[in-house]
Computed example of a mutant assay.
Amino acid sequence: MKTRDKFLLSAAIASMFAAAPAAQAADKITLMVGGYEKIIYLPAKLAEGLGYFKDEGLNVELLNEGAGVDAENEMLAGAVQGVVGFYDHCVDLQAKGKYIESVVQMAHAPGEVELVSSKQPQVKSMADLKGKTMGVTGLGSSTNFLTQYMMVKAGVPLGQFTSLPVGAGTTFIMAMQQDKIQAGMTTEPTVTRLLKTGEARVLVDLRTAEKTKEALGGTYPAASLYMPTDWVEKNKPTVQKLANAFVKTLRYINTHSAAEIAEKMPKDFYVGDKAGYIKALEGGKAMFTTDGVMPKGGPETVLSVLGSFSPNLKGKKIDLSKTYTTEFVAKVK
């Protein structure tokens, strides 16, 4: 082939490729979950299992972090783009000058339970835990926030009880078995595991909206997808895809049985007790929203709870409208 002919052929091939649409690579997103085996954060793994992220053209990597406060720190450091964790961090961080917002509100109840060890039969109320050591997932975590609020509300000032970070699952159970903690706040399926063995009993139940209102004075929006506000503003198409996937997942939860949902979850989440996992999920499904929308009055309850004990909020003016957005969930078809 002559040199001129080779040049023309190469030019034709180059023109053909230039005219073809470029293959769209999936958007790579990394989300940190504050313990993705916890039922309160079930939508993250369920969305992955149902293929909803891929359906939206997203390549989502879920990283696991046992405490929400540690997940929050990873996001602030720029290691991840968002966190599946409690909304109350959005309020707490604004008081520190950092703006993050809930873009999908997954739950309108914490799904947490204050358990007391069966070795403490004299404990009948939060006030009886004065001088005791209480388990939380991490210092600065939502379990710590709620524990501090309920103790102060019961008339026990900060400093007259101890919060000990013990994580969740097996580490929480071992801490209670070894009497390192006399009570503690945890989630399903850890709650069901301890109740089944009789090693603990329920002191305060925050697994439903009704019981949460009794204990906290109002609706307490909890599990959410929260992200830095500046990142959301710069990446709206990607955030919309995430909202689409999570709202579809919430609809799935609302329209399927606990047994059907359990089948979509990793088998090791059952911790050897599938029936117990399904039972816990049946009792906890009601905590999830059906549309990802922030419940009315919820942010105000969170601010009231945190403001009652947290020195971070003393004298600070919090703009709740900047702690969440419904822009994306409102557009989900």
Rank of each mutant, 00 (worst) to 15 (best):
G218A: 05
A20N: 07
Y99L: 14
S310W: 12
K248S: 10
G140L: 01
E74I: 13
M294A: 02
K236Y: 05
K264I: 07
G34K: 02
Y36P: 11
A95Q: 06
K333D: 12
M32H: 04
Q24A: 11
V247K: 01
P121Q: 06
K248D: 06
T187F: 13
Y149D: 01
S163R: 10
F17D: 00
G140T: 08
K322A: 11
M106I: 06
A22W: 06
S10V: 12
Q182W: 02
I29T: 06
L93W: 01
K285E: 05
V191P: 12
K241T: 08
T3P: 00
E199S: 13
G49P: 01
G272W: 09
M1R: 05
K322Q: 14
G167P: 09
K2D: 15
G297W: 00
A79K: 15
L76D: 03
E188F: 05
A209E: 15
T289P: 00
W231P: 03
K180V: 11
F86P: 02
S142A: 13
T162P: 02
A19G: 03
T212P: 08
K45H: 13
V166F: 02
I253K: 02
S141F: 01
D179H: 13
A47R: 02
V60E: 05
G68M: 02
K279R: 15
A109N: 00
